[in-house]
Simulated scan of single mutants.
Amino acid sequence: MKFITALLAGLTLASAATAADPYPARPIRLIVPYAPAGSADIVARRIASDWAKAVGGSIYIENKAGAGGNIGVDAVAKADPDGYTIGLQTVSLAINPSLFSKLPYDTLKDLAPIGMVATSQHVLVVNPAFPAKDTKQFLAVVKASPGKYNYGSAGPGSTFHMAAELFKDVTRADIVHVPYKGGGPALVDTMAGMVDMSFPVLSAAVPHVRAGKLRAIGVTGSKRSPLLPDVPTLQESGATGYAFETWFIVFAPANTPKPIIDKLNAALNKAISAPALKDKLVKDGFDTIPSTPAQAHARLGQELAMWGKVIKDRGISAD
């Protein structure tokens, strides 16, 4: 009996010691809700090691793809709020609530933003035979023949799709959506002339633009990209008021303790502000954007409202 009592006491003390261990006491799972090699996966793998060092632990990546990212996000929303399961998602976190008629989670209620990570521009590219070389010429051509020209996307609700639909909303250009099962096939068919244009993420398009297989009309952000410094932004060259960037955010389940959120945020900002990591991301087409959890939450809320209006106005649905 004395042995059992001593054993139980020892287990109790060990359990108490474990509970008191500073966070993180075990590996952190970072869920990416897409397949490997996509932009979200690239960003996650770029930052994981440096972020882990800054937070004083280890981070491993789990790809959990499906339903436009909703399966992976839902896995985070339903995880224990202990800081050991977190997620990384794109601007689709703000797009999907309006795109899908029903989600298994509530974006603002079930998730706790940790911080913004980076942004990436897209670029309007056309087949080299397309009869326009800049934004003004492009708009003149497509507006002269409404509905004649089409664009390929990575599928309904993808950032390729949303970049194009926002462009249509701002410029009133009538171009027709041709959805593909991924951005790669859409780019291949743009190069082959099967579709007239596409709005891919910058890093995917740059090699083909440099090789002369695609013509870049303009980048979608508010400033030129160092990857294509001679290519103007769409808004500076004719599409006044248009700007689109894919952004990346990391988040935890709601009710994750604030000290854990704050520790993860401080470590993330330290990692992505380091010159070496920033340079690697820039070469991949990403610009880092350190933030507080409150700033990340505010941006998410603003873009939920913005995309809700665009999707409703254009009658877009993924169902």
Rank of each mutant, 00 (worst) to 15 (best):
T5P: 09
A6K: 11
L7P: 02
L8E: 03
G10F: 12
L13V: 15
A14C: 14
T18N: 10
A25F: 13
A25G: 14
P27V: 13
L30C: 09
I31P: 03
A37S: 13
S39W: 02
A40L: 06
S49D: 15
W51C: 00
A52R: 06
K53V: 05
A54C: 09
G56D: 10
S58T: 15
I59L: 03
I59T: 03
N63M: 10
A65G: 04
I71T: 15
G72P: 01
V73D: 01
D74T: 15
A75W: 13
V76N: 02
K78S: 11
D82I: 13
G83P: 15
Y84H: 15
G87T: 07
L88Q: 03
T90K: 01
S92C: 02
S92Q: 10
L99M: 14
L99W: 11
S101E: 06
K102G: 02
L103Q: 09
P104G: 05
T107F: 08
L111H: 03
G115K: 09
M116W: 02
V117M: 04
A118I: 11
Q121T: 10
V123K: 04
V125M: 02
N127Y: 10
N127H: 12
F130E: 10
P131Y: 13
K133F: 12
K133E: 10
Q137N: 05
Q137I: 12
L139Y: 14
L139A: 15
K143D: 09
K143R: 14
P146F: 14
K148Y: 07
K148A: 12
Y149V: 05
G157Y: 08
T159N: 13
A163E: 02
L166N: 02
F167Q: 00
K168R: 15
D169Y: 14
T171W: 09
R172C: 03
A173C: 11
A173F: 11
V176E: 00
H177K: 06
Y180L: 04
G184D: 11
P185A: 05
L187V: 15
L187T: 12
V188W: 07
V188K: 13
T190L: 00
T190C: 03
M191V: 04
D196K: 05
D196W: 01
A204D: 12
A205P: 01
V206D: 04
P207H: 03
A211L: 12
A216K: 04
A216T: 09
K223N: 08
P232L: 05
Q235E: 11
Q235H: 15
Q235N: 14
E236H: 13
A239L: 01
A239P: 06
Y242P: 00
Y242K: 00
A243R: 13
A243H: 12
I249W: 02
F251Q: 08
F251I: 08
F251L: 06
F251E: 08
A254K: 14
P259R: 11
L264W: 03
N265V: 14
S273Q: 01
P275F: 01
A276S: 10
A276C: 04
D279R: 07
K280C: 00
D284A: 12
G285W: 01
I289C: 00
T292A: 04
P293L: 06
P293R: 08
R299L: 11
Q302V: 08
Q302T: 13
Q302G: 10
Q302F: 05
E303V: 00
L304V: 10
A305V: 15
A305H: 09
A305N: 10
K309E: 08
I311D: 01
R314F: 13
G315A: 04
I316K: 10
A318Y: 14
